[in-house]
Simulated scan of single mutants.
Amino acid sequence: MTDPTENDARFDRAARARHQAALDRIAPHTLARLRPRPASAPARARPRPWGWSLAGAGAAALALAVGIGTLAPDEPAPSPTAVVQAPAAAAPVADPDPYRDALAAFEEDPEMFLWLASAEAAPLAME
Rank of each mutant, 00 (worst) to 15 (best):
V66R: 06
L71K: 06
W50I: 06
A91S: 06
P49M: 11
A117T: 04
A89E: 06
V83C: 03
Q85K: 13
P110Q: 01
R100V: 09
W50K: 06
R46S: 11
P96C: 02
A65V: 07
A60Q: 01
P110C: 06
L103C: 07
A91P: 00
P42S: 11
S118N: 01
A119S: 11
P80E: 03
A57I: 05
W52Q: 15
Y99H: 10
P123C: 04
P73N: 06
M112Y: 13
R44P: 11
P76K: 04
S79A: 15
L54Y: 12
Y99L: 11
P47G: 05
G58Q: 08
P98N: 05
A105R: 04
D74N: 10
A121K: 01
W52F: 08
A63G: 11
D74V: 11
A90V: 04
A88K: 06
A104M: 11
G56F: 12
A121M: 02
L64C: 13
A104S: 09
E111S: 10
P47C: 00
A121G: 02
A55N: 08
L103F: 12
P73Y: 01
P47N: 07
D109L: 00
W52N: 14
A88W: 00
A122R: 14
L54G: 10
A77D: 13
W52H: 14
E120F: 03
W115P: 00
A65Y: 07
E108G: 07
A105H: 03
W52M: 14
T81C: 06
T81N: 08
D101Q: 09
P73D: 02
Y99E: 13
L54D: 07
W50E: 10
R48G: 08
T70H: 13
A72L: 15
V84I: 11
L64P: 01
T70G: 13
D74P: 08
E75L: 12
L103P: 00
P80W: 04
P47T: 09
L103R: 03
D101N: 06
E75V: 13
I68Y: 12
A91Q: 05
V66F: 02
S79M: 07
G67E: 03
P123H: 03
A55D: 03
G69E: 01
D74I: 10
A121C: 06
S53A: 12
I68T: 09
F106H: 06
L116A: 10
D101K: 01
A90W: 02
S79G: 10
P49W: 02
W115E: 05
M112H: 11
G51Q: 10
W52R: 15
W50Q: 08
A119N: 09
P110N: 04
A72K: 07
A117G: 15
V84A: 14
A45V: 13
S53P: 05
A77K: 10
S79T: 12
M112T: 14
L116Q: 07
P96L: 00
G51N: 12
S79L: 15
A88H: 04
A65C: 10
S79P: 04
S79W: 08
A65L: 13
